[in-house]
Computed example of a mutant assay.
Amino acid sequence: MDVQLHQLEYLVAVVDDGGFTRAAERLRVAQPGVSAQVRKLERELGHELVDRAGQRVRPTAVGAEVVAAARAALAAVAGVRQVVADLDGLLRGTARVGMVTSGPFLDVPGVLADFAAAHPGVTCSLVEASSGRLTAMLREGRLDVALVGAAGGVPDDLVTDPVTEESLVVAVPPDDPLAGARTVVPGDLDGRDVVAPVEGNALREAFDLACAPVAVRVTCSASDPAVLARLAARGLGVAVLPASLSALRSEDLVTVPLDAPDVRARLVLARPRGSVSPAAAAVTDALLAAR
């Protein structure tokens, strides 16, 4: 018996799509070729496998059993191919990544570039947006993994892994009234000019949450905390920085903790629950390793 793998593929497609024309369109082959190969398979097996009488092609009783066996055979072949690809260190497919502007905490573009160079069979894409937008895209199945801010808490409908979690400090010149304080409360910034991270940044989300009742004026913004510090040193406003820079001391700048104990600048790697493609899983592993 000479049964070809592509004949089984064509038969399954015809049954799934309910017709030869639709199956041919999906398979991107000529419709007469699909019909001829299914006919050849029927002659080889000695049974009609599909009922062509109605508007929608349906499997015969024998055809239904053959289709079930064909599905198993096609799945087994796909599994063999994946095993060989894994053993060869090859990945194929797509990996869709999102990120908030995160400063120096995780170099997502660098990780993605290195991954793409090591796995040329994977098509990688990167979207930069706010945490809310990225979270929505994860839930809609439009992203595989994203670096998002979680100042207000970690979304419980997504799988998340922590990247960083910090409290906030403010930076001012030594002659500023806040320079000698042990801590600064959000009310101390009422009416003050502030140089803050760009909107969508995890640190900015935390700052906005802490200072929601306060009328601060954001006069400048940047994604790099070092740039914010330089702007504050030049007198453009009070800089909002992560606590990892709390040891910053110079003749130009003094840092003071921002007293907002319930607010933390959190960054997490988030992804949908459930199974993911091997390419998406590999990109996620690379991002987790780079934390």
Rank of each mutant, 00 (worst) to 15 (best):
Ser244Ile: 04
Leu245Ser: 05
Thr255Leu: 06
Arg249Ser: 14
Ala243Trp: 00
Ser246Leu: 12
Val263Ala: 07
Val238His: 10
Val238Tyr: 03
Asp259Thr: 00
Ser244Lys: 08
Asp262Lys: 03
Leu258Lys: 08
Val254Ser: 02
Leu248Val: 12
Ser250Gln: 08
Leu245Trp: 15
Ser250Leu: 13
Leu269Val: 02
Val238Asn: 09
Ala247Lys: 08
Ala239Glu: 13
Glu251Trp: 09
Pro257Val: 07
Leu245Ala: 12
Gly237Val: 08
Ser246Val: 12
Ala260Phe: 05
Ser246Trp: 03
Leu241Phe: 10
Val238Phe: 06
Val254His: 02
Leu253Asn: 05
Ala260Met: 05
Val263Lys: 09
Arg264Asp: 01
Arg249Met: 04
Arg249Ala: 14
Ala243Arg: 06
Leu245Phe: 13
Leu245Asn: 09
Val268Trp: 04
Asp262Arg: 13
Pro257Cys: 10
Ala247Phe: 01
Ser244Leu: 12
Asp252Glu: 15
Val268Gly: 01
Pro257Gly: 09
Pro242Phe: 06
Ala247Trp: 06
Asp252Val: 02
Gly237Cys: 09
Leu269Glu: 05
Val263Phe: 07
Val254Lys: 02
Pro261Leu: 14
Ala239Ile: 05
Leu253Ser: 02
Arg266Cys: 03
Glu251Asp: 15
Ala243Asp: 13
Leu253Ile: 14
Ser244Phe: 07
Gly235Met: 13
Ala265Gly: 07
